[in-house]
C-alpha cells in the first residue's frame, strides 16, 4: 500500500516537471524503450543493476551502438545515456544518482536523453527522508559527487519563459523496474 502510494505520488510529481515515467517488466522492455528513442549512439556506464541485467549485452545483441572507448568524446556524441538510480523521492519526483564515477556524470549531462532505471521499492517520501542515505554515502566513500535530478534541464532566463533542454538532457525518462535492486546505496 505504502509503496503504491509513493509510486503514485512520485509519478505525478515527476510528470509535473516534464519527466516521462513508464513501467518496464524486463530487460527486453528497456532495450525496446531505448531503441524507440534513437538509432544513434547510446552510452551505458558501469553500474551494478545493469551488470545484473546484462543490459550491455542485450543492447548489443539487438544492434544498438554503444559508446566504448573514449568516453568523453563518446558521451558528447551519444543521443542517450542509460543509468540506474540509487533511490528517489516522491514529493518532488526526484531521482538520486551517486555520480562519483565520471562515466555516470558524462552519461547524464551530455546526451539529449537520459534514461533512468528505478526500482519502485526505492522511492522514499521526500528530501528529508533522503538525508540519512546522503550521510551514508559520505561516510562510505572519501569523495562524492551526488546528484538530485528532477526533470529535464530547464531555463527561464529569456523573458521568464520556461524552456526545456538548455545544457543538460532535453528529456528525462524514468523506467520503473520492479526487482531491480532494493539497496539505496547501490545504483
Amino acid at each position: 500500500m505504502q509503496e503504491e502510494r509513493l509510486v503514485a505520488v512520485f509519478s505525478e510529481s515527476a510528470r509535473a516537471v516534464g519527466s516521462e515515467v513508464s513501467i518496464v517488466a524486463d530487460v527486453e522492455a528497456v532495450v525496446d524503450y531505448v531503441k524507440q528513442l534513437t538509432t544513434c549512439l547510446v552510452m551505458v556506464p558501469d553500474f551494478a543493476s545493469a551488470k545484473r541485467l546484462d543490459l550491455v549485452s542485450a543492447l548489443k545483441a539487438s544492434g544498438v551502438a554503444l559508446v566504448q572507448e573514449d568516453l568523453r568524446q563518446g558521451a558528447a556524441t551519444a543521443a542517450v545515456g542509460v543509468t540506474g538510480a540509487n533511490f528517489a523521492f516522491a514529493a518532488t519526483g526526484t531521482v538520486v544518482l551517486e555520480s562519483t564515477r565520471e562515466d555516470i556524470r558524462l552519461a547524464t549531462t551530455l546526451p539529449e536523453h537520459h534514461v533512468v532505471l528505478l526500482d519502485p521499492a526505492k522511492i522514499l517520501e521526500d528530501d528529508l527522508a533522503a538525508v540519512p542515505h546522503l550521510r551514508s554515502f559520505h561516510q562510505n566513500s572519501p569523495r562524492n559527487y551526488l546528484a538530485y535530478i528532477t526533470g529535464p534541464s530547464r531555463t527561464a532566463d529569456i523573458e521568464r519563459v520556461l524552456t526545456i533542454g538548455v545544457h543538460g538532457p532535453k528529456q528525462l525518462h524514468i523506467l520503473l523496474f520492479t526487482g531491480l535492486s532494493n539497496d539505496p546505496l547501490e545504483m
Binding site: 562519483t100 528530501d127 569523495r143 562524492n144 528532477t150
Partner: peptide
Amino acid sequence: LLTSYVTWIRGAVP
C-alpha cells in the same frame, strides 16, 4: 518545488 539539479560535491572526484 525543486530545481532540476541539486549537486553535492565533496573532494577531488575522478
